[in-house]
Design a binder for these strands. Structure first.
Length: 568
RNA sequence: CGGAGUGUAGCGCAGCCUGGUAGCGCGUUUGGUUCGGGACCAAAAGGUCAAGGGUUCAAUUCCCUUCACUCCGACCA
């Protein structure tokens, strides 16, 4: 490839709307261009890198025994009505009508389509297990697209689906996808770690997310250095030690005018926030409930939702709070509440605490939960923070940020039941298939590579996904012997399966050096008269400080050696 | 959807407060001098100042509305 023929412009400055390094670099290096919010065009170099990620995904999926198919992105709404997600996905889906006024959706994912497909195609246990996958464009009407390809309205995803006869077989399918994911991310040069995760909208019982550690990540990851426990913050659990204390004095109601928030109440009563009980009123599937957490902690809505087993969980509005507590917002408390009360484990056995009095401008002192309130259930319902105790080994937990690049789910029969995906057993009995689903955000993975691997000068591509492995910077274009040597080298490298781009532009050397570093080609060969006079080309890895002068005849071997070194 | 902010040349920005029809840097084109880490000189092309309405003799500037984009929360690969 000749640079002069390539559709690419590099930018000296970062676009104003790019926030994180990987996004800035993708734009500056001319890998992607924005069409509109959350919509990007892959330029030739960006697409080359994307295709390399895809190739790795294909190889590992095929090796794991998954079969590639391609399902339509445009789907009838009817399918989504059958699974119930036509309503539960809400405005997250792009919806449209065809000319006959039939409701259609642009597929945000493919559980419905694939389950319907397998329900029709598979009728015997002999056809199972079966895992299918595709690499395809997904559409999601994200509330807030951001960070370039990280959260886009249209993106490339690899999604796989497994169908099995038994739970044990399904576990095996899950494990084989899990293992494939570990290999895929490793081959992309990514440090991605699996963490326990919440299952969210997709549903199912258990899941792991593959997280790339990055300060710009949108997810919190709780980890234990001692035992290796790792979980998404929204799912992470912790160990609490039982609370003991002297019995509370009798309840005492005090005036707390205009003190509504924990901070205000704590300041007014000169108490530390952890002595307070935060009482949150929620509406779960239409019915009000209360959730209690220590004043210095935050409620984890995911956990509460799972505990209650409700479909929707939203903070109650002012009117509901008034009705339930008889007080304005800010003065709710557990004492005397007539609705179900869920309390965090930290509050079990809590004595002498402070809470709202369910009367405007009043709080109560000396609350003993067991004595003064009726708690429906104690459970772990707070957001785990750094410093909490590991649920497995009790050592302190850490909190880091991560980018979710992959997610593997055990679905069970959630979809196979709605779509009657059944098969006949050896005994001739009809049984429901057990499913799993497995996603990789391919375009997101590409950007995650950049986020994790760059420096002040630009991208540092791993060889496995670099748009080109080798960039030859041709200086001194008027030197005929040099040009001939470059042509020769290009042929030789290509013949050996090494992709190479030649910067043949009529530019000053400095421009070529800067662009080469910005785009981040793993191996740079400078072809200039000076070095040639000294006996060869200058060869240098992207992060090497010094270039080596290598005789033309030895460049291929030298480059191969560099490639082999990284492959380790 | 809630809170904050920004829309001026391909990109990054100034001008607006204090109305008089637009400028800088990068990039692009042409010519020349240069040529190993984003060169220099000269000339040039390129703008319905987001859109619509209002105030005014006059609006990029003041006011209103709409739209788009970005940032902070819920969603997710």
């Amino acid at each position: 490839m000749r640079w002069s023929q390539l559709l690419i412009t590099t930018l000296r400055e970062s676009p104003q709307d790019a926030e994180i390094d990987s996004h800035k670099l993708m734009i500056r290096a001319g890998l992607i261009r924005k069409l509109a919010g959350g919509l990007y065009t892959f330029m030739p170099l960006g697409l080359r890198a994307l295709k390399k990620v895809e190739a790795i995904v294909h190889e590992e999926m095929d090796a794991a025994g998954a079969q590639e198919i391609l399902m339509p992105a445009l789907q009838p709404a009817e399918l989504w009505e059958r699974s119930g997600r036509y309503t539960t996905m809400g405005p997250g889906m792009f919806r449209l009508k065809d000319r006959k006024e039939n409701n259609m959706v642009m597929g945000p994912t493919h559980e419905e389509v694939v389950t319907d497909l397998l329900a029709r195609e598979v009728s015997s246990y002999r056809q199972l297990p079966c895992t299918v996958y595709q690499v395809q464009t997904k559409f999601r009407d994200e509330i807030r697209p951001r960070f370039g390809l990280m959260r886009a309205k249209e993106f490339i995803m690899k999604d796989a689906y497994s169908f099995d006869t038994t739970l044990e077989a399904a576990d095996k399918s899950y494990q084989s996808m899990y293992d494939a994911y570990v290999r895929i991310f490793k081959r992309c040069g990514l440090d991605a770690r699996p963490v326990e995760a919440d299952t969210g909208d997709i549903g199912g019982k258990w899941s792991h997310e593959f997280m790339v550690l990055a300060d710009s990540g949108e997810d919190g990851i709780i980890g234990c250095d001692a035992c290796g426990y790792a979980a998404n913050q929204e799912r992470a659990e912790r160990k609490v030690s039982p609370v003991t204390g002297a019995p509370s004095p009798a309840l005492e109601t005090v005036d707390t005018p205009n003190a509504r928030t924990i901070e205000e109440v704590a300041a007014f009563l000169k108490a530390s926030p952890d002595r307070l009980i935060k009482t949150l009123i929620y509406v779960a599937d239409g019915a009000p409930i209360a959730a209690l957490v220590p004043g210095d902690r935050e409620l984890n809505e995911h956990k509460l939702k799972r505990l209650i087993g409700c479909k929707s969980l939203v903070l109650a509005d002012d009117e509901t709070i008034m009705k339930v507590t008889g007080a304005q917002v800010g003065f709710a408390g557990p004492v005397g509440l007539k609705i179900p009360v869920y309390a965090d484990n930290d509050l079990q056995g809590a004595v002498d605490r402070i809470s709202g009095a369910n009367a405007t401008d009043k709080h109560v002192l000396h609350v003993d939960l067991a004595r003064d309130a009726s708690v429906t259930q104690y459970e772990d319902i707070v957001i785990v923070a750094a410093g909490d105790s590991c649920p497995r080994c009790g050592k302190p937990l850490t909190l880091k940020r991560g980018i979710e690049v992959g997610h593997v789910f055990k679905l069970g029969t959630k979809y196979s039941e709605s779509f009657e995906a059944t098969y006949l057993t050896e005994q001739g009995q009809s049984q429901t298939m057990i499913m799993g689903c497995y996603g990789i955000g391919v375009s997101r993975t590409l950007q995650a590579v950049i986020e994790q691997s760059h420096d002040a000068n630009g991208i540092i591509w791993p060889i496995s996904v670099a748009p080109f492995t080798v960039a030859i910077l041709q200086l001194d274009a008027q030197d005929a012997a040099l040009c001939e040597a470059v042509n020769q080298l290009e042929k030789e490298l290509k013949a050996n399966g090494i992709d190479v781009i030649i910067d043949d532009r009529d530019e000053r050397p400095g421009v070529k050096f800067k662009d080469s570093d910005l785009i981040g080609f793993p191996i740079r060969i400078v072809a200039g008269s000076k070095a040639l006079a000294k006996g060869g080309f200058e060869v240098k890895g992207r992060t090497d400080a010094e270039a080596q002068i290598v005789p033309p005849a030895e460049v291929l071997a030298y480059v191969r050696n560099l490639i082999a070194k990284e492959a380790l």
